[in-house]
C-alpha cells in the first residue's frame, strides 16, 4: 500500500470505539500523510513509508520551547520513561522532539490504526506530564 491507499482506507475506517480519521496527503520529496482523529481532539499524526517501515510521527515540541535550566532533567526523564510508553518511543528530528512508532510495511491496517490512536493518547500524556519543562 502506498500513501494514497492508506489515505483512502483510513478515511473509510471506523474503530470499535467509533473513532474515524481525517486524512490529508502532503506531497513533497517524500510523501507524507497527515492523519487526524475526528472524535478525539488531538495532534496530527504524520505517516511516512520507507522500503520496510511505516513511520508514524507526532511532533511534540522544539528545542526553543524547553526551559534552558530544565533541559538536561527533561532529557533524562525522557530516557527513563521511553520504555514505559506503549508502542511509541521518543526521538529528535532536527530541533524537534517527536514521539513515534515504527511498524513493518507488512502490518495490517488494524495495526496502523492502533498505532495512530495510541500515539495520540501517548502524545497528550507526554505533554501533560512534561509541561513543567516547557516555557
Amino acid at each position: 500500500m502506498n500513501i494514497e491507499d492508506y489515505a483512502i482506507r483510513l478515511s473509510q475506517y471506523r474503530t470499535q470505539e467509533g473513532y474515524t480519521f481525517d486524512c490529508q496527503t502532503i506531497s513533497g520529496e517524500v510523501d507524507v500523510l497527515q492523519v487526524e482523529m475526528n472524535e478525539f481532539e488531538c495532534f496530527p499524526v504524520f505517516l511516512t513509508k520507507t522500503n520496510n517501515q511505516i513511520l508514524c510521527i507526532v511532533y511534540l515540541w522544539s528545542e526553543d520551547e524547553i526551559k534552558t535550566d530544565k533541559r538536561v532533567e527533561m532529557l533524562e526523564m525522557m530516557l527513563d520513561t521511553s520504555i514505559s510508553i506503549p508502542l511509541s518511543a521518543y526521538a529528535r528530528v532536527g530541533n524537534r522532539f517527536v514521539i513515534y512508532g515504527a511498524l513493518s510495511v507488512s502490518s495490517s491496517l488494524d495495526k496502523v490504526v492502533e498505532e495512530i490512536v495510541t500515539l495520540n493518547e501517548n502524545a497528550i500524556d507526554v505533554i501533560t506530564a512534561m509541561e513543567d519543562f516547557l516555557k
Binding site: I26, S27, G28, E29, V30, D31, V32, Q34, F46, T48, T50, N51, N52, Q53, L55, I57, Y59, V93, G94, R96
Partner: peptide, 19 residues
Amino acid sequence: TMVKTTENVRKATATITDN
C-alpha cells in the same frame, strides 16, 4: 534501511514544515 530511514524522516519533516 538506517540510512534511508534517516534520510526519509529528514525529508518528511522538511515536507511537513514547508506545508
